[in-house]
Structure formats: C-alpha cells, structure tokens
Design a protein around this nucleic acid. Structure first.
Lengths: 115, 115
DNA sequence: ACTGTTCGTTTCGGAGCCGTAAGTATTCGG
DNA sequence: CCGAATACTTACGGCTCCGAAACGAACAGT
C-alpha cells in the first residue's frame, strides 16, 4: 500500500520540520537542499551539468551552491581524470551524517502527526 | 497507528518536493515557509511578536518576511483596533490556495514513494 | 594542428535577507 | 498626566545569492 498522508497532515509535517530547521539555524536554500539530497540519494557519479539539468537551473547556480555546501564540508569536488573537463561531486562523512540527521528529524515529526 | 515513514522515505519525500519547488520557481526561505504555514495551520489571531516567539527569531525578521509574502498577496496585515499597537496578520484567498497546492504536492509525492 | 565544442568557473551589477540599533506610535501605571 | 513599557517598523552595514555573459582548460573531429 502507498504512503497515506492527507493534505493537512502533509502541511503539518512540512510546517513542523521547517520549524525545527529554523530553530536549529544553519539555513540552506531550496536549491541547495535539492542539490544536496540529489547527491546523497541518487547513484553517482554527479557532475555540475547533470545537477543543473536535473534541477533545471544554470550551471553557475550549481557551482555556487557547491561552493557553499562544500565550505560546510557536506560535499567535496574532484577532477575526473578520465575527462579532465568534468568535476565529480563526492559525498563526505559530515554530509552523510547531516543528511541522516535530517531524515531522522522528518521521520520523528511524521510519527507525531495526528491521524 | 502513527504515520509510518522510514528515514530513507522521509529523505526521498523531502528531495522530491524540493525538486518540485525549485522547478516551479518562486522560492521562499525556510523562515518564510515556517511563518506562512504557522499562519494557515494554527488558530488565529497571529501577531508579529507571537510569530517571532514561536520561531525564536527577532521581530524585524517577521516584519520583513511579512513584507515579502504580503507583496506576493499570500497574507495581509491589519491594525488591531482594540490595541492599536498590535498588528493582526490575516489569511488571504491567494494564500489559502497556495498553501493548499503545497499540501497537494506533498501528498502526491508521498503517494509515489517506494515502500 | 587547427577549429569548434563542451565543461566548469569567474565576473559584473543588482536584489534580498540578516542582525543590531534606533525610531514611531500606543498603552499602562502611579 | 507623564515616564516607562510594549508593539511594530525603519535604517544601516554586511553577507549571500541571482542571471547573463565572458573566460580558460580540455577534448573531438578532420
């Protein structure tokens, strides 16, 4: 059976998690979140143009987002030695941990929802 | 029974919805989302200081967020005639519609999750 | 080896949000 | 009434992000 979630429950979940995120500080934009989660949920390798295409944004947006979340230690970059024009985006321990924490937070909030 | 959502499912849901949000453009920050949903999900009346306290942010942040989402027509403000220092934040038709659309989007993505 | 293409980054001016502090209006207390 | 308290807004300087265009490096075809 599919995951059953009413519109109202959906909104409350969204609200509660965003409240948690605001409380704990350290904001990322929607784009940055989308990029981060794509890197950690979809199979590698990830490149700048691949992410740009998937999100339907320009490449500079991806470059800058990677600058930001890279500075936070959540991802790293490496030249592709096979084709040195490419940059391969790699996961990091800190990033995996942060993503895991987010998943736990959402799950916990989902568990608390009124039904 | 509670809403059952594994950490991985939670993350995929977060990812998918953020992808939708980025695609459709019109970004709001986490704070703005938290404020907007608080206004539409919790019982009125809502004031600047009430929202500031709940989100644990300063009042100017709330004022500016209201400026922004107000300019989008998603909320409106009115002086409280009983105590004219207060500003009461009111829901709008456009705002209710936008929130409803968000709820539907999240619900649809939840329904598609692998289980 | 030249020419054109691909890939990622950098640069530019502009717009938005932040935190702190000051400012305006209204109400409360003695 | 008049000073203190409350509620919200505005002002200021700083930081981040944006879109568009230009750029440098690496590759591909001929």
């Amino acid at each position: 059976m599919p995951i059953a979630l009413s519109p109202l429950q959906s909104l409350k979940l969204w609200h509660d998690v965003h409240l948690d995120l605001v409380h704990q500080g350290g904001d990322l934009s929607s784009r940055q979140i989308a990029i981060l989660l794509t890197i950690y949920l979809e199979p590698p390798p990830h490149t700048v143009r691949g992410l740009a295409r998937k999100l339907n944004v320009t490449k500079p947006v991806v470059t800058r987002a990677l600058d930001t979340i890279g500075k936070l230690g959540l991802v790293s970059r490496r030249r592709d030695e096979a084709d040195r024009r490419n940059v391969v985006i790699q996961r990091t321990v800190a990033g995996a941990l942060a993503v895991e924490r987010l998943g736990d937070m959402i799950m916990a909030r989902a568990k608390e929802l009124p039904r």
